[in-house]
Nucleic acid binder design. Sequence first.
DNA 1: CACACAACCTGTCAGC
DNA 2: TGCTGACAGGTTGTGT
Length: 278
Amino acid sequence: MPELPEVETVRLGLHKRLSGQAISFVKQRRRDLRIPFPSKFVENLVGQQLVKVGRRGKYILLHFLSGRILIIHLGMSGRLIICDGGPDQSVAHEHVVIGFTEGLVMTYRDPRRFGLMSLTRENEISSHQLFNRMGPEPLDQSFNGQVLAKAFRGRRASVKNLLMDQSIIAGLGNIYACESLFRAGIDPHLEAGSISVRRIGRLSKSIQSVLSDAINAGGSSLRDYVQASGEMGYFQHQWNVYGRAGLPCGGCNNQGSCSVKQIKQSGRSTYWCPRKQK
DNA sequence: CACACAACCTGTCAGC
DNA sequence: TGCTGACAGGTTGTGT
């Protein structure tokens, strides 16, 4: 599930339903996810009043009145679901359950445990290990083709690989890297540093439009729900190339005259249309 | 420093 | 039906 649009969709759901409430209980069912939980994790959260829910890249940030921040990453298979209390049944892989004062309960479920939770403070967030090398937010005002072109300068890795590098640009993963390159008409094999500034400008616009469209559709759902409310996202129906190996791409659909290729780049599947992407 | 790849862990699906 | 291998939305450590 979780690239920027899915994380943003979850963030919004958490923010709307939980802001202003305080944490009444925390159940921590393991000592680690991808990394160990911080010491005194439960003690440091109980009683904290949630002010707002933010996001940086693919990380969800729960900001508390005290200045404390709960950092959550969903990894590959992480889900955050809000529900009304209910009976206390332990479902498989529900590693953390956080109860709020008005009776709502936020559950973190993550079968593969590639996600993480950590704690920090407002004055330490920008220098935090997880964020101090992170690239720009693609949906910020300040992000544009010039910024991306500067990050690409001199780099010989493929443009696809660099789009997935969180120190180049924050929040893109395999799906949205592929879809952004498709919208920009760029071959994913191209050396990033060899692409003209003009084309990189188009790419930056494509990234923003793909992400915006996906957020408006509630993200992409694969074989499970994504939104904090438990509803499905719908962007997977708008994929032009991702997961479409052997099928016509979205752009050629009406002409039926292309076939989406699936290749491996640094161990990850890349989907692209050789007819539309040069 | 830049880059490619293996490893982390579980679930699912195609093929035999 | 059951087994095996490949693959899946991400990140990090290691080796070249």
